[in-house]
């Protein structure tokens, strides 16, 4: 019987203060994960003690939330102001015809709570804006990982500003047409990698969105799986993926890996930036426009 209090061995995140023991039933449920030397009982306890926040519960967020809940990540906050539409159903696999018209965060939370009773899932039925983010991000490093599953560039910029200002590890994925991108940023661990804004400045022209050029469900699913895996690696203390951009071509089935470089003049994370001011001012300017 596993009764001892498990403590984490990895460094750097809130999950290390783990106080949740692994019960017999949990030990059985997660046995294939615990078998991994990189996970073990302590890693599983880190999952259980972790709190992640998922911005956007569309194609990416559906699968990410389900993977993380199934893996035993103990606290998951889902944020989305959209309602389920019929055009979502081919790739947002948690939803069915009966969910049409229901808020996505609420619908996903209800289903995942029923399926994974050991996980605490909360729903925020609002678009992420400078206003709605205030109660969500009250404390420094309140979340272990921030997962950007949104579907528009403006929200991605806001999520990045939050990650920088709150010192949260950001795992950002995106997909449209047959192109996918996945990246991980953590300022405290690897400041030389900069942030999402260093890579994609806010004034950059965006051509690829699912609404305008379409996407296949498995294309989004591929990125969501990788995003989930990356988040679990971070929760285990594996930081070797931080600072990399991975680009997936869904026609050629090729992955390209690039190293992200800090822009010293970046208005979000550069030397001249003021993190909190950036979040407040830029977020306020866009607060009526963030949807995903």
């Amino acid at each position: 019987m596993v009764t001892e209090q498990l403590t984490s061995t990895a460094s750097g995140n809130k999950a290390n203060s783990g106080t949740k023991a692994l019960s017999d039933s949990d030990f059985l449920r997660y046995s294939r994960q615990v078998l991994l030397a990189e996970v073990g009982e302590s890693g599983q306890a880190q999952f259980a003690n972790a709190h992640v926040i998922v911005i956007g519960v569309g194609g990416l967020g559906n699968l990410v939330a389900q993977y993380l809940a199934a893996a035993g990540v103990g606290n998951i906050t889902l944020v989305d102001g959209d309602k389920v539409e019929v055009s979502n159903l081919p790739r947002q696999l948690l939803f069915h015809d009966s969910d049409i018209g229901v808020n996505k965060a609420v619908a996903a939370s209800a289903k995942l709570t029923k399926a994974y009773t050991q996980v605490r899932i909360s729903a925020v039925a609002e678009h992420l804006t400078a206003t709605s983010m205030q109660p969500l991000f009250k404390l420094d490093r309140q979340y272990d990982v921030l997962l950007d599953c949104s579907d528009n560039f403006e929200t991605r910029q806001l999520v990045n500003r939050i990650a920088v200002s709150q010192n949260i590890a950001l795992v950002s994925a995106s997909a449209a047409h047959f192109q996918g991108q996945l990246l991980c940023i953590e300022q405290q661990y690897k400041p030389d990698s900069g942030c999402y804004h260093c890579l994609f400045p806010a004034d950059m022209k965006v051509n690829q969105t699912c609404q305008t050029i379409g996407v296949l469900g498995p294309m989004v699913g591929t990125l969501a799986s990788m995003q989930s895996l990356m988040a679990l690696q971070l929760l285990l203390g594996n930081k070797q993926l931080v600072g990399n951009l991975y680009r997936f071509d869904g026609k050629q089935f090729s992955w390209r890996q690039l190293i992200i470089t800090r822009d010293e003049s970046c208005s979000v994370c550069g030397q001249a930036s003021h993190y909190n001011e950036c979040v407040t001012s830029a977020g306020t300017a866009n607060q009526n426009q963030h949807e995903y």
Binding site: D151, S174, Q181, V206, N207, Q208, T209, V215
Partner: peptide
């Protein structure tokens, strides 16, 4: 040189 554009969908 590797040129690419931002992908924002999800």
């Amino acid at each position: 040189l590797e040129l690419f554009s931002v992908v924002a969908g999800g």
